[in-house]
Design a binder for these strands. Structure first.
Length: 266
DNA sequence: ACCTAAACCTGGGCGC
DNA sequence: TGCGCCCAGGTTTAGG
């Protein structure tokens, strides 16, 4: 699933491919994955590509903008074979002849065109907490101290911390040795700091490996990431704990699969 | 204001 | 072989 490391990988590759290009056409194959007025961006130059949490934001030279969310199964890809692939939903063409494809099996994600880049940016940022690399341990400790929700639900809450999804949340809590069911208010300040450091560590590793491709995620060149080979606990039903050798357990928190070692995570 | 659960969607895997 | 069911989860929305 595209989380911070996957979306950042896509952002940096798209930046290399597209900044400076002028959009000549937007072909919408599936309405469900597109909104806004595509005429706004025709003839405009791509100035910059940013990432906020799991969102991508494209700044256009005429003050308009586009945002993209990959949700579960979205891809932003450039290989030409995507021209006629099933599940290609939107095609963005450049004056240079280059094309970029929005491909998505489940149609949860989207490309949206906005009249104003600034309005778009503010609208997205208003829903998001800080990036885990910018948040302080003090901040996370304060957020946790105000809630009785389980710690895993809090770190997955994009309004509290932007960019962490289920894969990295599971692995970070195992690395920190914290039971995902612990209530926010029960977490000490030093434990909150340990959790934040573990989140950063697994995200860094994800970034270094180009993300996790256990399922449908691919980068801009249709390549796989490597983090799926390095999962600590995520998805390891019936697996053993790498730290103590105990059986990993699968539980459900907030409707999501959660993997943990009951011996190491207290 | 806070919290929970359902809805959105498709393909893959499973049991029968 | 095939059918029905469950599961995957980021975000929004509805309801308690």
């Amino acid at each position: 699933m595209p989380e911070l490391p996957e979306v950042e990988t896509v952002r940096s590759q798209l930046e290399k491919e597209l900044v400076g290009e002028v959009i000549s056409q937007v072909k919408v194959i599936d309405d469900m994955c597109f909104s806004g007025d595509s005429k706004n961006v025709i003839g405009a130059k791509i100035e910059n590509i940013e990432r906020w949490g799991k969102w991508l934001g494209i700044m256009m030279s005429n003050g308009t903008g586009m945002d993209i969310h990959l949700k579960m199964t979205g891809r932003m890809v450039v290989p030409p074979e995507y021209e006629s692939m099933p599940h290609t939903r939107v095609i963005i063409e450049m004056e240079s002849g280059r094309k970029v494809y929005y491909w998505d099996i489940r149609r949860f994600g989207y490309v949206r065109v906005w009249d104003s880049y600034e309005v778009m940016r503010k609208s997205i940022l208003s829903k998001l907490g800080p990036d885990p690399f910018e948040a302080s341990g003090q901040y996370l400790s304060e957020v946790l101290g105000k809630t009785d929700r389980m710690v895993k639900e809090v770190i997955l809450d994009q309004s509290k911390l932007a960019g962490v999804g289920n894969i990295y949340a599971n692995d970070a809590l195992w690395l920190a040795g914290v039971d995902p069911r612990v209530r926010g208010r029960q977490v000490s300040k030093s434990t909150a700091e340990k959790i934040l450091n573990s989140i950063r560590e697994v995200l860094q590793k994800g970034l270094r490996l180009g993300g996790a491709s256990d399922n449908t995620y691919r980068d801009v060149y249709d390549g796989k990431g490597g983090y799926q080979e390095e999962f600590l606990v995520y998805g390891k039903t019936g697996g053993k704990c790498m730290r103590c050798g105990g059986d990993l357990k699968r539980i459900v928190i907030g409707g999501r699969g959660t993997w943990m070692c009951e011996n190491c995570q207290q």
